[in-house]
């Protein structure tokens, strides 16, 4: 039901065909979709999970890997609390593109966004990128690292649960990008961590109302 305590936005990015959609559907619907077509623009899924007796709602935005949708997908990074950067361990080019993706994330996402690197399709025999290479890359760029298989459901649950736990920890220590607004806080039972990053140039609502924009508190 809907008495969640936290709301987090998770955005998946990465080259086309690395298995983002499969990961999301595995996690939200528990299935591995046969003949999954390429995502157009952005897709959206929701899943509520429990972390230590607290309900956490995950809004999952699954973006298209195709270059042509880059403009729309980038606009979704900005409000993300966590970004999952996916590559295909059996496909070197998808790994080579990671630096490009990081540059994009740097440019468009919040500076405090939780970043997780995922090497997907570990069920495949034809691995091209050894685990330690991915691990090292993640470490170098301050990211979590996890290897998954959407097909065999390896580590998928763990991936999202880990993110939920981490974000919750962050939220508790108030280290999460957020507004001071109490948006949608109708009955006092939920504390949604709302949209937008500290870097998107948005201001605290109260300040906007009085017409005196000040610098972003998180970035300044």
């Amino acid at each position: 039901m809907d008495d969640y305590k936290f709301l987090f936005k998770v955005v998946l990015v990465g080259n086309a065909g690395v298995g983002k959609t499969c990961l999301v559907r595995r996690f939200t619907q528990g299935l591995f979709p046969p003949g999954q077509g390429a995502t157009i623009g952005v897709d959206f899924m929701i899943k509520t999970v429990e972390v230590g007796n607290e309900k956490v709602k995950l809004q999952i935005w699954d973006t298209a890997g195709q270059e042509r949708f880059r403009s729309i997908t980038q606009s979704y990074y900005r409000s993300a609390h966590a970004l999952i950067l996916v590559y295909d361990i059996s496909c070197q080019p998808t790994f080579d593109c990671l630096t490009d993706w990081l540059r994009e994330i740097e440019e468009y996402a919040s500076c405090k966004v939780l970043r997780v690197l995922v090497g997907n399709k570990i069920d495949r025999e034809d691995r091209e990128i050894p685990t330690h290479v991915g691990e090292e890359f993640a470490e170098r760029h301050n990211m979590y690292y996890l290897e998954t298989s959407a097909k065999q459901s390896d580590n998928v649950e763990r991936l999202f649960m880990q993110i939920a736990e981490d974000l919750m920890k962050q939220a508790r220590s108030r280290d999460l990008p957020r507004y001071n607004s109490n948006h949608q806080n109708i009955n006092g039972t939920t504390t949604p961590i709302s949209d937008s990053s500290c870097c998107s140039g948005k201001f605290i609502n109260a300040i906007v109302i009085f017409g005196k924009p000040t610098a972003c508190i998180h970035c300044s």
Binding site: G37, A38, T39, I40, G41, V42, D43, F44, W61, A64, F69, I72, Y76, S79
Partner: peptide
Amino acid sequence: SKFSAMCHSG
């Protein structure tokens, strides 16, 4: 966000 995603429905 959601309406934009719907605009791209596949």
